[in-house]
Design a binder for these strands. Sequence first.
RNA 1: GGGGCGGUAGCUCAAUUGGUUAGAGUACCGGACUGUCGAUCCGGUGGUUGGGGGUUCGAGUCCCCUCCGCCUCGCCA
Length: 630
Amino acid sequence: MSNAEDITPSPYRRTHTCGELRPTHVGANVVLTGWVNTYRDHGTGLIFIDLRDRYGLTQVVFEKGESPEELLTRSDKLRGEDVIAVEGKVRIRKGGPNPKLETGEIEVVVTRLELLNKTDTPPFVPDETTDLPNEELRLKYRYIDLRRPTMQRILSKRHRVMQVTRRYFDEHGFLEVETPILYKSTPEGAREFLVPSRHQPSDWYALPQSPQLFKQILMVSGCDRYMQICRCFRDEDPRADRQAEFSQIDLEMSFVQRDDVMNLIEGFIRRLWKEVAGFDPPPFPRMKYRDAMERFGIDRPDTRFDLFIQDISDIAAKTDFKVFKDALAKGADAPRYASRRGVVKAIRVPAGGGAEKLTRKLTDGYSEWIKGFGAGGVAVVKLNAQGTFETGIAKFVEVPGIKEEFISTLALKPGDTVLFVADTYAIATKSIGELRLKIARDVGLVPPSGPEGGPWNFLWVIDFPMFERNKETGKWVASHHPFTAPLPEQQKKFVEASLDDDDTIESMVSAGYDVVLNGSEIGGGSIRIHDQAVQSKVFALLGLTPEQAKEKFSFLLEALRYGAPPHGGLAFGLDRLVMHLVGTDNIRDVIAFPKTQTGADLMTRAPSHVTDQQLKDLHVKSTWVPTPKT
RNA sequence: GGGGCGGUAGCUCAAUUGGUUAGAGUACCGGACUGUCGAUCCGGUGGUUGGGGGUUCGAGUCCCCUCCGCCUCGCCA
């Protein structure tokens, strides 16, 4: 490492950044470096250049009489994105201040210019005033796109999030421990990326979906408190808020119960938002999974708007509406909340709260739209100003006896619109939950997000079911992951339960918890199983034989036998946290070098071909056959 | 794997039922201009309409195949 003091100072070593100079610097001789943002050429006598770096913009001026004659000629050739260094004197702007710039009161009269690097004409300019080029081009020339102040701010905010995170957990006694990227395939959950082993022909590493098992092992190791900002990999199709390669803030703690983790995490999020967003969130409400599903139709409720869902099966049964009757006939023998049991769910859109914007065209469209979620359609009714039901299924509810019950149950007022979905519990709940969100978007109930936008509604969702039935196979699957513990008071019941005791198994509630922000899951975790008997029971329920469980997770099962402390933890999606903090719904905006939907990096052009020799070394042969050109 | 949207000058976009030489703004090149700040004014260069095939007298436009990007369902313990 060379010592900076030992380097001969360049005549153009900068003295200030482009965001720094103020009237207090007037008279100083300064050197600035950066990119030519814009140039305004008034002829040989006067040229303005806005010089840009990460810190801001400063106007530098070449002026006849003040700048050397040869500079006037040379500066005439400067173009956007050239990299230059200028030396000159700071002075108050002759043409008056530019209030749009932090440095807008001053300018630098250039006495020396060095063209550090002439640019090719850039494919686009990193300018916030012109229309952005399409994302494909932005990704190909990511280094130009990242020069935009907006992108620089995002990079810097992401950096802040990581710094606050490390500081907070350090203050609370956490050790940051790195865990392997070349890991073992554990083929539950997401599809994995595989890496062939050179030393062990035909064997493969997998890239971790998360460091889950390692962090539990670290607890067995006596680490007590672990955290890591780590990269995770899931070879599934991306979405606007999802990349195959993403980052987690991962943590785990020993000798804790659910509340200990939740309190510490809540402190973290509140600190993070205070320091990065300047917002101090109130204590997070806690909502049970069942309540979330009943009132919001989703396990990550967006509570920024008050559209509530209600189960109105009892009244619906009294109507003569065939759609309701047919739905309610499904699984009538099944217990309440059973996924196959028929229900009728309603959502009330209040007058003055969006009902007037729910046009016939919109509500007609919902029936078609909701079929995408498996529901048959959406029934609609309005209570008009005279207190009479009209449109849609009015004739089925404008019935003495039924009408009053409808109005009182749903607390209807004149002008309200009610939408209904009738189907099995599973389908009706999910689809009316989606409908709630769609209505909110359609009638403008969703506040703008981000730093300048609407509220930050944090909440905890707790008491998740431990197991769900897989729709196709009918087998039990872990709702969270197979290492999630049941609530302590249920543990005994669970261990003693018979594998075919469906009622007991379905009633098991896990010690898991999710952090939800404005309808988006930003983190989740649980207290883990530290007892081998419980862990074996879970594996048995999931249909894993002891041999299979041993093959896949022997190291964990073994570790649990050697003095595993009770432990629990949580992981945040770092990218999603940053998305909220910067107010974007595009995850690629918060990743410096993101990938496309087909997993391509348009800048480096990864993935790419490798040589036959490389494959041979790895004992790998491709079976892919190109489709013949026609 | 399914559904939807998009790809026209370096960039952002336009182009009537299929019809003249595919236009505009911006960038770029040249010129004018001493107070601009998205400078202005004058002139100019710039096109495999993503690629391939087809229908037609004639295709940016219609049909088929294909590539790429985005959104979405499935998927994401």
